[in-house]
Design a protein around this nucleic acid. Structure first.
Lengths: 210, 210, 210, 210
DNA sequence: TATGAATGAGACTTCATTCAT
DNA sequence: AATGAATGAAGTCTCATTCAT
């Protein structure tokens, strides 16, 4: 087989990454053997190592999948002019991601990545960067809102951002463990949390998330 | 075979658990070898297996971290009569737990446990139960507050509880990864979130977090 | 099995080293698998790694077996007062070592070590040190002889030593390859080489190798 | 499939052999991968296998180093009429070969071949034949010298030949390992060794090494 | 009770060789 | 003739657990 096209190469990579994603999602990084991934990918041991230098390489490639996050944020970047609407939009986007059944494996692998981030610097960097992205977006929105007098100024924009991010992290955990996580209700609560950050004005309540 | 006293027995157990906690905290469950724990505990392989049937046994004993729940709940059991004060008290207790440097290892192991919970039913049960306890407490407080007209009735008590729990889960993650997690500011935000759940009344702002 | 005695420990080590010696002798370092050594030693994989950290460790332990050399030299250290007799004694000792059928494996492994020394610094150090020992002895003898006027002063003592050492290295090679290496005849020649280094005196011939 | 000329074919072969020589010289036969050779040769895996059936084929082609023998023998073929002069000439030729920096890789690969000869019959045959050639030449010279009364008759011609060959084998080893091998001094010693084989005559000293 | 040497299945990875293109 | 992606057996090494002492 002579030189493969970039497209084919990328296809193989994806094939392996998908197999790894499925395996890691089910058993975690360290309880998954390369043999599992090899079998699931339908390729041979050697072929897998042709595309990824090591199991760690595979872990890092998956733990830090920036792609998803970028996609998510891009869909919000074109957001509404009102910063608070922007926050609500962000919540909707994440809610959709949280609900998507196809993303279950990714969410589970994400959690494994959170643990792995504690002892693997490369993974941690990826994870933290992945979280800094939405955090920065939220900070920007909040600061704009504060500047416009829409959000209380006695709360740090960064703390608000971290809190919102934390909520989603916790939701991912609860959703992945539990069978009875009511996404709808929780999202309504998050909307209310956002509105709770507003400055106290008579017209506040009118805006409460549709 | 001189039988040892229950007290000694319990001491040995703790000795092993502490060693395991330290190891797991540093390297995760599956990257820690029994040999590491044995060495750190100062005992022998045989001795460790005398107290714990297997490595999984050890993992389960630690992942399901009864300590935190009990400490937290005990501290709040003496709760104030006002349910919203109760919520704020809960936040303070968690904030203290989150800040305690001695609890760092426990927090880290907790995160590893969250990942492990995805594939180990026993661990998951422990983790979920550990979370259901404060959640139930919050639900009770919120329902009482809603009954008293202090908290909006259009939000589910369970969703509120899950949201508050999620916030703390996310904070644990962010604190354990990051060097620049500002606990104070974030706690202020959580207080504000709780107040945001209040019914809209002119006197709301007065109550904001002690 | 509680703590093993030093004697037993040493026995196990020897057991493994002997198995390794046999395997390496037959197939060389890199064509011998740990499985071969494990099987031949009668122990388990794990047990072998309990005594040697790695295959390289094993290679180094064998490639540089200083013991043998020391033993050889000790038997000559108590040598005759006449330095030239000392050289002849050395030749006899090496001749005996070269002939000893029990040493065949060692000689073969030695040759593998010579090749390995080209790319493994640790092995090289061991090999070179092992050769420096007899070389230094020869240099000492030759210098004494030169001082006493028994050996020509126009030849470097070091060059003479290297030449004699080289002869033995070459003999080991030829003996291990060939089926028709006549040790006796070659040793007689070496004796004559030594005598050839003498100063030209009428009585020279009388001394020729007992 | 455009057939290529024999010239091109031979060029390719040499290209591969040179790459292999460099690799083997650095890392030995078994620590060198085909991939190393392929990369160094600038060709592809397939191409290499078009010229050599296997890695062993390559090893055999190099271990059995015909070059040296031929070069050496050709240089001496024009030998002087005096057999002892012939021996000295031989020494000079080998000394030159030993000193030639361009031959370093060949010498190193030669040593690897000596080890390989212990377990690979084909390689052994090549190596032994390679040594038998100069040995036979020396035997012929010595026998002629003995017949002419120039060399002592109590020493076997074959033993003398083996001894001289051994010296050079040892020198190759010592040179390849060491940084401080004094070729000049050692060669002087070899010359003296040859002269030491002479029959005892008053004029011996006059002849010492041209 | 306690020890720690021993086990052996299984982990990750490499690499000589092939063959579709 | 030439390519290089793919194969898969085999390599080295680890580690949870056991059991003779």
């Amino acid at each position: 087989m002579p030189k493969i096209s970039d497209k084919q190469r990328e296809g193989r990579r994806r094939q392996i990454l998908e197999a790894a994603l499925a395996c890691f999602s089910e058993n975690g990084f360290h309880q998954t053997g390369m043999a599992d991934i090899v079998k699931r990918s339908g390729l041979s041991h050697g072929a897998v190592y042709l595309y990824f230098a090591s199991k760690d390489d595979l872990i890092e490639a998956l733990a830090d999948d920036r792609h998803r996050r970028e996609a998510v944020l891009n869909s919000v970047a074109q957001g509404s002019s009102d910063p608070i609407d922007g926050l609500h939009a962000l919540v909707r986007v994440y809610a959709a991601w949280l609900t998507d059944p196809a993303g279950e494996a990714r969410r589970r692998v994400g959690i494994h990545g959170w643990a792995e981030a504690l002892r693997n610097r490369r993974v941690r960097t990826g994870v933290v960067e992945g979280i800094d992205m939405p955090r920065a977006l939220i900070v920007a929105l909040v600061e704009r809102a504060q500047h416009d007098g829409l959000i209380r100024r006695d709360l740090g924009a960064d703390a608000i951002a971290r809190t919102l991010v934390a909520i989603f992290q916790g939701f991912v955990l609860q959703k992945c463990w539990g069978e009875d996580f009511d996404v709808e209700a929780c999202m309504a609560t998050v909307g209310s949390v956002i509105d709770g950050f507003r400055t106290a004005r008579p017209d506040v309540r009118r805006r409460t998330r549709a």
